[in-house]
Design a protein around this nucleic acid. Structure first.
Lengths: 189, 189
DNA sequence: GACTTAATTTACATAGTGTTGGATAATCAA
DNA sequence: TTGATTATCCAACACTATGTAAATTAAGTC
């Protein structure tokens, strides 16, 4: 059932998109996003340049689609973590997220850790904003002087920014350690 | 003395650069940075396109130079605030910063609030990182379980991100209010 | 094996880049 | 004010990248 939902896509399409994406990630490891052209992506992917346009409007469009996929994945991971542990416990939730990121570190380091690709940060931020909004009441009860939307801005920015820095520095700490750090840093009394 | 330090620059140069910068800010208000070309900037500034290249290598170079100027300004503002109040009090320091940003909201909204111009975020982050490192010992004393570099990542990201969100939402709260919010949010016990 | 759809090839018009050499105009120094 | 200096302008150039079109080849589907 599950694999029929997306009514079977031609394997050639999957292959081409996969190769284009891998090529783009590779290039992003090597150069700034402004230096990347459709030419280069196609060449690296050993795909004809014209074929690129059969799949994406332009590079920006491609980045956005990849960012959407990333957001979906992150959402799914967080959902799954919650189900497995049957608790909205913040630390375990973060641990699930961080372990997913660590498992796909090559990708996330490029799109979040590196400079100059804001689409991914935007998408991830809106995922976090949604998640944080759900657990925000506690803060309001605890400290009524804190404006809830400011707290959401603060929390989501701190999360993304810290994770990005963690990736930029080649993850010097383990995922569980980072989850614990977040728990401590977010703790209000 | 002070004005002689930069050994008098030709007023034509100052004028040209000023017009180019204003044109770029205007364009950034109107469109994404990828859509901006040297052509457009020159046209908007009523400056010949060739003249652009007499001042900047390319658009990226121009953005970097503007980001450097911004970082200098922010640094200066924070220094001045500390001098005036003769105290490293966090809330007043932040208030000085936020008031400076509010006073130049048009500029900051474009370069920080809008999407897709990471250079400015980077530069501002490194300013904050420096500042936060100085006041980090207290946290270490208070809670020895928190890794100091993680705390720096967390703090700087939260600051920039919250300020950006504040600008993106057209500053619905006053600068003093935001300074107070930061003080509350950063408070650890 | 016939049908369908994806990818390739070649080609073209358009737009932007970065640099040149020479003319013009604004600033500076005497 | 004058003459020297230097910034800006103008026209032109080669080059790279973009995005699209039409016809051909190759791969996947039933």
């Amino acid at each position: 059932m599950a694999e029929n939902e997306k009514k079977r896509i031609d394997p050639r399409v999957l292959r081409t998109r996969q190769m284009l994406k891998e090529a783009l990630i590779e290039l992003l490891e090597e150069m700034d996003v402004e230096k990347i052209t459709v030419n280069r992506i196609a060449e690296r992917a050993t795909i004809n340049r014209v074929t690129f346009y059969l799949h994406y409007k332009d590079i920006q469009d491609m980045l956005e689609k990849m960012a959407d996929e990333m957001a979906e994945n992150v959402n799914r991971v967080m959902m799954r973590t919650i189900e497995q542990h049957k608790s909205g416990d913040r630390e375990t939730l973060l641990l699930g997220l961080l372990e997913h990121i660590a498992a796909n570190a090559k990708f996330y380091k490029v799109v979040l850790g590196s400079r100059r690709i804001p689409v991914f940060h935007e998408r991830l931020r809106s995922v976090f904003v949604d998640k944080i909004k759900l657990g925000i009441e506690e803060i309001e009860e605890h400290n009524p002087d804190i404006q809830s939307d400011v707290a959401v801005w603060f929390g989501s920015a701190a999360l993304i920014g810290t994770i990005s820095a963690w990736l930029r520095n080649d993850m010097p700490y383990t995922a569980p350690f980072m989850a614990r750090q977040f728990a401590l840093l977010f703790k209000q009394r």
